[in-house]
């Protein structure tokens, strides 16, 4: 693919082992940067509030995003609706570092995702299995995250999606070459992407966990399951002590294999976000855009 696509994948590689935090104000953005976020996601409302508010949710006000860009020196991401390439072009015009074509917002197109190869700015997209991930990559996504179930504080769906993706990757890896053509057909993706997974045992782009991560232990769990970093949305600024919790999650991602350190980090973090259980929610955002 193009040099620009390579550069865009490369930026995602720089985010690895890091935590990307949802922020709604310059003040929160500074707290996130100070806590060690490797990037921030600028949005008007965090997913838990989007969920509570209901109605159509859209791209954030560019003025609000610019305020956050001015407040921090780390990369700034912002969300556009699935299929809404006009919103994406606006985000590109204000020089956002990453666009999240996100199921957290109301989808603008129930059939087509954005042709992300048309853009200079990189995209991250959600996926709940290998087929979705490779379809998004084929459309030009430079980074993948699990969909999870945003705004719930319940990690169960992120776990399900990451486990699904990893088990499918292992299955492809162990196939004979003859079987790859059929696998490509089943997954509805081009053969060369399936071949890449077969040879390398991983996605061709960086793969993060997202949706429902609320504690250092949640973050460590996702890293153990194969995530290369995590997004934390509502989990931080809906908790009792955002700065402390954010810093603890950052450290948990770096040293996810050190149980003693994780025990220390989990101490005295104040109240976690209350959360909603999977079976209590009416709206499954993960079902948006396949």
């Amino acid at each position: 693919m193009s040099t620009q696509f390579e550069l865009n994948k490369n930026l995602a590689q720089m985010l690895k082992g890091g935590v990307i935090m949802d922020v709604t104000t310059p003040e929160q953005a500074r707290i996130a940067e100070e806590a060690g976020a490797c990037a921030v996601m600028a949005l008007e409302r965090i997913p838990a509030d989007i969920r509570a508010a209901g109605g159509v949710s859209r791209m954030s006000d560019p003025k609000m995003i610019k305020g956050i860009q001015e407040a921090v020196s780390i990369p700034v991401m912002a969300k556009c609706r699935i299929g809404h390439f006009a919103e994406a072009r606006i985000l590109q015009a204000i020089k956002i570092d990453y666009i999240d074509e996100s199921e957290v917002l109301s989808p603008a197109d129930d059939k087509y995702h954005i042709n992300k190869r048309d853009f200079k700015v990189p995209f991250v997209c959600g996926a709940k299995d290998l087929g979705e991930a490779l379809r998004r990559i084929n459309e030009g996504a430079a980074m993948i995250r699990t969909k999870g179930e945003p705004g719930t504080g319940d990690v169960v769906q992120a776990v399900r999606h990451m486990r699904m993706m990893m088990s499918e990757i292992r299955r492809i890896q162990n196939m004979s070459e003859d079987e790859l053509y059929e696998a490509a057909k089943q997954l509805q993706v081009p053969y060369n992407l399936v071949e890449y997974v077969h040879v390398n045992g991983k996605l061709p782009v960086v793969n993060f966990a997202a949706g429902g991560v609320a504690t250092p232990a949640d973050a460590a769990l996702m890293m153990h399951l194969g995530a290369e970093g995590v997004f934390v949305g509502s989990g931080i600024f809906k908790s009792g002590n955002p700065a402390k919790r954010a810093a603890a999650i950052v450290q948990a991602v770096t040293n996810f294999e050190d149980d003693n350190l994780l025990a220390e980090l989990s101490e005295d973090l104040g109240e976690a976000m209350v959360g909603i259980n999977e079976n209590e929610i009416a709206l499954l955002m993960a079902e948006r855009g396949k």
């Binding site: 590689q13 720089m14 985010l15 690895k16 082992g17 890091g18 940067e33 060690g36 976020a37 490797c38 990037a39 020196s73 780390i74 990369p75 810093a247 950052v250 450290q251 770096t254 040293n255």
Partner: peptide, 15 residues
């Protein structure tokens, strides 16, 4: 390596 220097700098101190 490359990454975010703010993050690496903070973790160097914390650890």
């Amino acid at each position: 390596p490359g990454g975010e220097s703010t993050v690496i700098g903070k973790l160097l101190r914390k650890l």
